[in-house]
């Protein structure tokens, strides 16, 4: 066990956990931020996507010891009132079915648009390819990313 100081959604948090604990489980079990989801645990599905210094990363493969000093954003902190352009586009297109993958999809999309505000069709497909949606809402995801890009 060791103490880690983390910056999450703009607030400092202290946790006392094993250094190998992935940020995913620190968020979910220790900080009650459960919007970040567990899907595979091996960086294959994207359900656990967060932003680390603005980049989309898979929090299931990010040990807490590697996250100190960085700025972490989770779905809960993407916007204050759930009105980030990506979230708004997701509502407009009524993207979700079960909804379980969607926080990860939204975090990946938001990071993409942060870095590339005008993505081509191919850019979107490449960026979103790491996020599985078992319900198959991929077409709406793509459409929502396009809408969000227009409304940035």
């Amino acid at each position: 066990m060791a103490t880690f100081n983390l910056t999450i959604n703009g607030t400092s948090k202290q946790v006392d956990v094993d250094p190998s604990t992935p940020v995913l489980w620190v968020l979910r079990d220790h900080l009650d931020l459960v919007g970040t989801k567990f899907g595979c645990g091996i960086a294959q599905c994207g359900a656990c996507t967060i932003h680390l210094d603005g980049n989309a990363v898979r929090s299931c493969q990010l040990p807490v010891s590697a996250a100190e000093g960085a700025s972490i954003t989770t779905i809960e902190g993407l916007s204050e009132n759930g009105d980030h352009p990506v979230q708004k586009a997701w509502m407009e297109h009524d993207v979700p079915q079960c909804g379980y993958c969607q926080a990860g999809q939204i975090m990946t999309a938001a990071a993409l648009l942060q870095q590339n505000p005008n993505p081509s069709e191919e850019d979107i497909e490449n960026a979103m390819n790491g996020n599985i949606c078992r319900c198959g809402t991929y077409l709406r995801i793509k459409a929502a990313v396009k809408t969000a890009a227009q409304n940035l």
């Binding site: 459960v34 567990f38 989770t74 979230q87």
Partner: peptide, 29 residues
């Protein structure tokens, strides 16, 4: 008529909706 998913706001903002998100005081894993 088309109506939006009643849980849409909760889904896109990461609110606890699933049993995997549930937690109570004193809960073990």
């Amino acid at each position: 008529t088309s109506k939006k998913n009643v849980d849409i706001e909760k889904i896109v903002s990461g609110k606890p909706l699933f049993s995997i998100d549930h937690k109570v005081e004193g809960m073990k894993y």
